[in-house]
Amino acid sequence: MVEPTRRDFLFIATGAAGAVAVGAIVWPLIDQMNPDASTLAAANTEVDLSNIAEGQIVTVKWRGKPVFVRHRTQKEIDAARAVPMSELRDPATDESRAQKPEWLVVIGICTHLGCVPLGHQGQYDGWFCPCHGSVYDTAARIRQGPAPYNLALPPYKFLSDSKVSIG
């Protein structure tokens, strides 16, 4: 075994000091890319569902985007579940789009060119985008028009029977 020399110790100590110095310089550059507190506060939106009547659509803001919260009637749920997957351009079951059948939470931005669709409109009483004619059903699935995909689903969870957290 070769005995370590003073030179070996100096190389290791210099390398360790250099690594600490690089970390001390790089960390503030990386840390400044994190969002500030006001942005993090807007990352989640809580919605009180007790004020939304059956059949009503409420629009809330989440991360600067409109989010539609729809309290669906049994008739709307049944109509959405009766659609054969073969009729859908972007196939998705109603069950996969709504955590609770009576509540549908979707991002309110048309997947064609980013317009905001109007609720309770169109042939399927879902949403209609007046800019280019995209029509969505009561499960926010694309049924007609140029939009290629269903309205997107934001991450959300039910905090209770009367409160949902989006984000």
Rank of each mutant, 00 (worst) to 15 (best):
112 H>Q: 05
64 G>F: 14
106 V>L: 02
73 T>L: 04
116 V>S: 14
68 F>C: 02
141 R>Q: 10
69 V>K: 07
161 D>C: 04
63 R>F: 10
15 G>W: 11
19 A>E: 03
135 V>W: 03
103 W>P: 00
57 I>V: 15
165 S>I: 08
141 R>H: 01
84 P>K: 11
35 P>F: 13
38 S>A: 13
111 T>W: 04
112 H>F: 13
152 A>S: 11
101 P>L: 09
137 D>Y: 01
38 S>M: 12
73 T>E: 07
121 Q>G: 13
36 D>T: 07
77 I>Q: 03
165 S>D: 03
160 S>R: 07
13 A>G: 05
31 D>E: 12
41 A>L: 13
113 L>E: 10
1 M>V: 13
39 T>N: 07
2 V>G: 00
38 S>R: 11
112 H>T: 06
64 G>A: 11
70 R>C: 04
154 P>W: 15
20 V>L: 12
29 L>R: 14
124 Y>I: 01
32 Q>P: 00
73 T>N: 04
22 V>A: 14
134 S>E: 07
4 P>R: 15
6 R>A: 15
138 T>D: 03
121 Q>F: 00
73 T>G: 09
157 K>T: 05
139 A>Q: 00
13 A>I: 09
107 I>N: 06
85 M>F: 02
88 L>G: 01
100 K>L: 12
137 D>H: 08
144 Q>T: 05
144 Q>N: 10
167 G>P: 01
112 H>Y: 11
83 V>I: 15
167 G>R: 13
16 A>T: 11
142 I>W: 05
72 R>V: 09
71 H>I: 09
119 G>H: 09
99 Q>F: 08
154 P>I: 14
2 V>N: 10
167 G>Q: 07
140 A>V: 08
158 F>E: 02
24 A>E: 07
92 A>C: 02
124 Y>L: 06
116 V>Q: 14
38 S>I: 03
81 R>G: 00
9 F>Q: 12
1 M>Q: 10
131 C>W: 08
75 K>Y: 05
50 S>Y: 11
135 V>A: 02
21 A>Q: 03
118 L>F: 10
136 Y>T: 01
2 V>D: 03
121 Q>S: 14
113 L>N: 05
129 C>N: 08
147 A>S: 14
103 W>R: 04
55 G>V: 03
63 R>M: 11
71 H>G: 03
122 G>P: 05
59 T>S: 15
39 T>L: 13
95 E>H: 01
157 K>L: 04
16 A>E: 02
12 I>M: 10
8 D>M: 10
30 I>D: 00
126 G>F: 06
66 P>C: 13
152 A>Q: 12
118 L>T: 14
21 A>Y: 01
126 G>Q: 06
162 S>V: 07
164 V>A: 14
130 P>C: 07
1 M>N: 08
154 P>V: 12
136 Y>P: 03
82 A>W: 05
57 I>H: 12
124 Y>V: 07
145 G>R: 07
87 E>P: 00
48 D>C: 01
18 G>I: 10
123 Q>Y: 05
127 W>V: 01
9 F>S: 05
61 K>A: 15
151 L>I: 02
19 A>W: 09
79 A>H: 04
